[in-house]
Amino acid sequence: MTERSGWVPDDVDTGLPSAARLYDYLLGGGHNFAADRALAEKFLLAQPNARTIARLNRAFLRRAVLHLAAGGVRQFLDLGSGIPTVGNVHEVARRADPGARVVYVDFEDVAVAHSRLMLEHDEQAAVVQEDLTDPAAVLAAARGTGLLDFTEPVGVLVVGVLHFVPPEKDPTAVVAAYRDAVAPGSGLAVSQFTADLQPVEMAGIVEVMKKSMNPMFPRSCAEITALFSGFDLVEPGVVPLPLWRPEEGAVQEGDPGRAGILAGVGHKR
């Protein structure tokens, strides 16, 4: 028996777990189903630090957006944006500039449905339902919102999502297509699971996620760094989540390598 609620699109199979809803559960959200929670518990067995990692990844997103906004970026394309939760990109960006504009991109039905509800009366943000691995379709849909001016710098956010893109989709080429579409001065923020930091735990996560609609493909530091071709990496480069420009006074929670995810930000030349 599967769950069904008024906020769930009719064609969603609530018995098939998804990465977006698993992430929502790890962050303490309420837009997930029994199948997602069951998978999340297996995820936690493989990686007991998973809730902390989810929170660290969300914190990196916030710091990356604020960094780009401080450099003059006033529009953002958030690829694989997931289910709305506190501290969304448009909320963070508008701390720097109330006029900041955001287009969210996701293909997961529940994520898109909730984003549309949340943004229903927001004229400076929108969501499009597309697959980030089809840049032509994403860029056309983003332009169609009328919110992004690609002659001006855009912050391209690929946070916590590329590890769901299989090698045959060529994530480096996918990111390069977005790089080529944006103006000089644009930014790229990436975070991605890696086996470089905790190989045993990562192997367990890969096995767990094979049972979901979103298998996982960790990548090495070299592979993640290669995504920034055409961008100047800002200091400290590609590093574990907690080490990317931590806020002044931030307390490190144990070994940064336990974050399991590498992250970086670059500026287009």
Rank of each mutant, 00 (worst) to 15 (best):
M1T: 14
V8Y: 03
D10I: 11
V12P: 00
T14Y: 06
G29Y: 05
L44K: 13
L45T: 13
I53M: 13
V65M: 01
V65E: 04
L68P: 12
Q75R: 11
D78G: 04
G82Y: 08
G82Q: 04
N88D: 09
H90T: 04
H90W: 12
R94H: 13
P98E: 13
P98K: 13
P98H: 12
G99K: 03
A100Y: 10
A100C: 14
D106K: 11
E108F: 09
D109H: 12
D109Q: 14
A111Q: 00
A113C: 12
A113V: 12
L117D: 14
M118L: 14
D122R: 07
A125T: 00
V128C: 11
A136N: 03
A136Y: 03
V138S: 09
G146A: 01
F150G: 13
F150Q: 14
T151I: 05
P153F: 04
V154A: 13
V156Q: 00
G160C: 11
P166M: 08
P166R: 07
E168Q: 15
A173W: 04
V175E: 05
V175I: 14
A176C: 06
A177P: 11
D180Q: 15
V182R: 11
V182N: 11
V206S: 11
M209D: 01
K210N: 08
N214G: 02
M216E: 04
F217Q: 03
A222Y: 07
I224G: 07
F228S: 11
L233P: 11
V234N: 03
V239T: 02
P242Y: 12
R245D: 04
P246L: 00
P246R: 05
R258E: 07
R258V: 02
G260Q: 06
G264K: 04
K268T: 03
K268N: 09
